[in-house]
Computed example of a mutant assay.
Amino acid sequence: MAEIPADTLRAMISDLDGYIERRAAELAAPIVAKAQEEAAAEVQGARGLQQRAEDLNVELRRMLKVRDRQVERARERAEHAEAAVARFRAFLNDDFRQWCSPHGVAATYAERLIEVLDREVKAGGGDPR
């Protein structure tokens, strides 16, 4: 068997290394391309989910603003109603009770009205005074 010169062996090894690298790149290319497509699809899906979350956030904030306005109006109405009840109670206690009526009927009636009013206010969680 003849001896192969070292330069020739080095050249053959270098050629073989180049061939292996090219062949590996050729075989890996479709796998890499598929992985890139899958990653791109996942990114697109994530972007869609993110956009949906942002849209839901905007809608939720809009709904909360509407609800906040409704709560504020209800609070204002409740305050107005409480003030009206307080004025009515004061009227019964201070004015109606003093009306002239035979046998003190107005005073008794005023006391009964105040009792009913106080009971209803207290049942609603309010302070009757």
Rank of each mutant, 00 (worst) to 15 (best):
M1N: 07
E3P: 07
I4P: 03
P5N: 09
A6D: 07
D7M: 10
S14V: 06
S14L: 09
A24M: 02
A24T: 07
L27H: 09
L27W: 01
I31F: 15
I31N: 15
V32L: 01
A33F: 00
A35G: 12
E37G: 13
E37R: 12
E38S: 03
A39D: 09
E42K: 15
V43A: 12
G45L: 08
G45Q: 10
A46T: 00
Q50W: 12
E54N: 02
D55H: 08
D55K: 11
V58R: 15
R62W: 01
M63C: 12
K65Y: 09
R67W: 12
D68P: 00
Q70I: 09
V71W: 05
E72H: 06
E72R: 09
A74Q: 08
E76V: 14
E79F: 05
A81Y: 14
A84Q: 03
A86P: 04
F88D: 07
F91N: 13
N93S: 12
N93H: 12
D94T: 15
D94A: 14
Q98S: 03
Q98F: 01
W99N: 01
P102Q: 11
V105D: 04
A107N: 00
E111N: 10
R112Q: 10
R112Y: 04
R112V: 05
L113E: 15
I114L: 13
V116E: 06
L117W: 12
D118Q: 11
R119A: 05
K122R: 13
G124L: 10
G125T: 04
